[in-house]
Amino acid sequence: MPANITVLYEDSDLLVLDKPVGVSVGDLKSGDIQDSVLEWLGTRTEVKPGTGVTDFVLRLGILHRLDKETSGVMLVAKNRATFDYISELFRTRQVKKTYEVLVHGWVKDTDFEIRAPVGRDRRVGVKFAVGERGRESVTRFKLIQKLKIAGQDYSYLESMPETGRTHQIRVHLAALGRPIVGDIKYLGKNLLNAHKTPFTRMMLHAKTIEFTDNHGLVRKFASPLTLAAEF
């Protein structure tokens, strides 16, 4: 069971977690919950949504997912009303998320947007790709710093996805030709072998999340971790 999940905030409605890299969210439908956020939540007596097949029950209140290789802020609802309210905010794009990301190479622009549909890669089912049959996907980026580490060029970026497709940031950056450092799935074996880095993780971190709660209060939560500590 993952022991290094940090609680950033908690009240009677909401639990805000800082998920470490290497811990999956888990899936109750498939039974894949070992060493996951779901397994950790199952040990907390106050997060018991009951029985049934609703999304709230099946997710134990988890409102959104992060890839196993991605660290950072996650929201968990502790009751059905909060789950339904914030789920609707996600659906209507009223939740603002920022990520920190380190990519191979130097980007040309300091502020830019990638607007390209993302869908399942028909050639490799476990991957996603930019393609005409994909769903509308928009990600904005801001350059924080250009770096040269051990003779290699990197760009340290802030990423602000406006949509929430699976692997969206990873796919958009790979399509740009600036794949995320440590992203084995989208870097490709040839590039992976050609780009030896001192980093041991995928350099993508969910830094902040912000929304307006059902009382009209703006809530913003941030992970204390920063990727800059890695270089």
Rank of each mutant, 00 (worst) to 15 (best):
M1Y: 12
I5P: 09
I5A: 07
L8M: 05
E10H: 07
D13Q: 13
L17E: 06
D18M: 10
P20N: 10
P20S: 10
G22E: 03
V25A: 04
G26L: 04
D27S: 08
L28Q: 14
G31N: 06
L38M: 13
E39S: 15
T43I: 01
T45Q: 13
E46F: 12
E46A: 03
V47S: 01
D55L: 12
D55M: 07
F56T: 02
L60I: 00
L60E: 00
I62V: 15
L63D: 06
L66P: 11
D67A: 07
K68D: 01
R80E: 15
R80T: 06
D84H: 05
R93F: 11
K97P: 06
L102R: 05
H104Q: 08
G105N: 07
G105L: 06
W106A: 02
K108I: 00
D109E: 15
D109W: 10
T110I: 03
E113S: 15
A116D: 13
P117N: 05
R120E: 05
R122C: 00
R123E: 12
V124C: 00
V126F: 14
A129E: 09
V130F: 12
V130I: 15
G131S: 13
E132A: 13
R133F: 07
G134I: 03
S137R: 11
T139V: 03
K142D: 00
L147E: 10
L147W: 11
Q152V: 13
Y154A: 02
Y156F: 15
L157I: 01
P161K: 08
G164H: 07
G164F: 05
I169Y: 11
L173W: 10
L173A: 07
A174Q: 15
G177D: 05
I184C: 00
L187K: 02
L187V: 14
G188Q: 05
K196P: 02
M203E: 06
L204W: 08
I209G: 03
I209L: 15
D213Y: 12
V218N: 14
F221G: 03
F221D: 03
T226I: 03
